[in-house]
């Protein structure tokens, strides 16, 4: 049951991202702010931290590839960034405590890393011309706030489910 749940949540989040994307950009005082939903990578980082690094990277590769093909038509962008972030997360977590608060902060930092990498990529290949301050004010900060809200709402649930699954697997291995 929990085994299917781990995959089902990632599929659900993959499909929910573009739907939340439809509400963005939002207009505040004639300025537009872009909120990018990064639910899937948040979840995958949690998978890497609490459950299994290899599995997280595999999911990252798979969903990253789907994301590349379906949305942006540049193959290799997300399918590289997603597993990379999972790898970084699992290496960092070896040196720090696995507390929920710590992993929340780590996840937010990595999401900011994803945004930054994408900013560098898109500006360097010339699809988008944007200054860093504009990106910082209109993309990065609103995105971080939106994803922090999501993380605070669901982070504990992810941790609960994944640890449950981890313990289940450990028990199976003991037998």
């Amino acid at each position: 049951m929990t085994r299917i749940l781990v995959i089902a949540i990632s599929v659900l989040l993959f499909y929910l991202e573009p739907i939340f994307g439809l509400f963005s950009p939002i207009e505040l005082n004639t300025d537009f702010y872009v909120l990018v939903p990064r639910f899937l990578i948040i979840y995958l980082i949690f998978v890497a931290v609490y459950y299994d690094r290899k599995r997280a990277m595999l999911y990252g590769l798979f969903f990253g590839l789907l994301y590349d093909v379906f949305f942006i038509d540049i193959i290799g962008l997300y399918s590289f960034i997603y597993p990379l972030m999972c790898l970084v997360a699992s290496f960092t977590v070896k040196y720090i405590h696995q507390h929920l608060l710590v992993s929340t902060i780590l996840t937010l930092l990595l999401v900011a890393g994803v945004e930054l990498l994408l900013f560098l990529f898109y500006t360097s290949i010339g699809i988008k011309t944007m200054t860093f301050t504009y990106f910082y004010q209109h993309n990065l900060i609103p995105t971080m706030i939106a994803n922090a809200v999501f993380l605070l709402m669901f982070g504990w649930a992810f941790k609960y489910i994944l640890l449950n699954r981890f313990n289940q697997k450990a028990l199976l291995l003991q037998k």
Partner: peptide, 15 residues
């Protein structure tokens, strides 16, 4: 019907 908007919004695309 629009079924998705490119969620990362670096390019202005809808599907």
């Amino acid at each position: 019907t629009v079924i998705a908007r490119n969620p990362d919004q670096w390019e202005e695309k809808i599907i």
